[in-house]
Simulated scan of single mutants.
Amino acid sequence: MEISLMMYTRNNFNCAEPLFEQSNSLNINFNVSKKTVWLIHGYRPTGSAPVWLQNFLRVLLNQDDVNVIVVDWNRGATTLLYNRAVRNTRKVAVSLSRYIRNLLDHGASLHNFHFIGMSLGAHISGFVGKIFQGQLGRITGLDPAGPKFSGKSPNDRLAYTDAKFVDVIHSDANGLGIKEPVGHIDFYPNGGKTQPGCPKSILSGIQYIKCDHQRAVYLFMASLETKCNFVSFPCPSYEDFKAGSCVDCDYNKGKSCPRLGK
């Protein structure tokens, strides 16, 4: 396993820098007093970089003056054997914990860490959170991977106990994503399954497979950029929502409607 930590700040927006220098000293652009966002990608069978990565960086740094660390675990994620990539998720978390302890030694704090994990990256975030006994500030799971994780115990997947706050967007719950709620709050846009605008035929190729799965990423980015709130209605099921049973946000009775993302 070889992991690269690519650091971006507003001072080096267009060009990644290593988080630690060869002498193990911390990069001068890293500010320990600021919030740190960790971006962790998922399964990469072909080894290509995520198409959403650069735009995600732009959105994050336009939104807030933060440290952004892109966790590149491509060597562990690039394999035609999905089970191998699944096994590597725990190894990645252990490696990340060593870097995190180094950051803590330099004065960083766990409560300032926000992990954003896509697919397998969501479970890596959860495993990191378990190592630090749930003391991370926040974990956002973007359609956490379902295969090999659905039905597992909280010790073997992302769980709400892994951080002070865990929010999850489910966009492909009947495909590549996990179906069951695993966070403090779980969003199921459009029922969490079939997303508008995604191909409905396998003839569309790879987009038919990954479009719904990746929609969680684009919804989260959109929540940071738009002035429109993605209002979500607490509801036992999507069927109940479509039947009109869950469209009341009565703040006076404590039934607030949470906003996705942000």
Rank of each mutant, 00 (worst) to 15 (best):
M1H: 08
E2T: 11
M7D: 01
Y8P: 04
T9E: 00
N14I: 07
N14A: 11
C15Q: 15
F20L: 15
Q22Y: 13
N24A: 13
I28R: 05
F30H: 14
S33L: 09
T36Q: 06
T36M: 08
V37K: 12
I40M: 08
P45K: 13
T46Y: 13
P50R: 08
Q54R: 07
N55G: 12
N55Y: 15
F56S: 03
F56L: 11
N62C: 04
D65C: 06
N67G: 06
V71S: 02
V71D: 00
D72H: 06
L80T: 09
V86H: 04
V92W: 01
R101Q: 10
L104C: 09
D105P: 10
S109Q: 14
S109K: 14
L110D: 07
H111K: 14
I116L: 05
S119M: 03
G121Y: 01
G121M: 02
A122T: 06
H123Q: 12
G126E: 07
G129Q: 00
K130P: 04
K130N: 14
F132W: 02
L142Q: 10
P144M: 07
P147L: 04
G151I: 04
S153Q: 15
R157C: 07
L158S: 08
A159G: 13
A159C: 14
Y160P: 02
T161D: 14
F165R: 14
D167H: 13
V168E: 07
A173H: 10
N174W: 06
N174T: 10
G175I: 00
L176I: 10
G177K: 03
K179M: 14
P181Q: 14
I185R: 04
G191L: 06
G192M: 02
T194G: 11
S201F: 14
I202V: 13
I206K: 00
Y208R: 01
I209C: 05
Q214R: 12
Q214S: 11
M221C: 02
S223W: 05
L224H: 05
E225I: 01
N229M: 09
F230C: 01
V231H: 10
V231G: 04
S232Q: 05
P236D: 03
F241G: 04
K242R: 15
A243F: 02
S245Q: 12
Y251V: 05
R259E: 14
L260A: 09
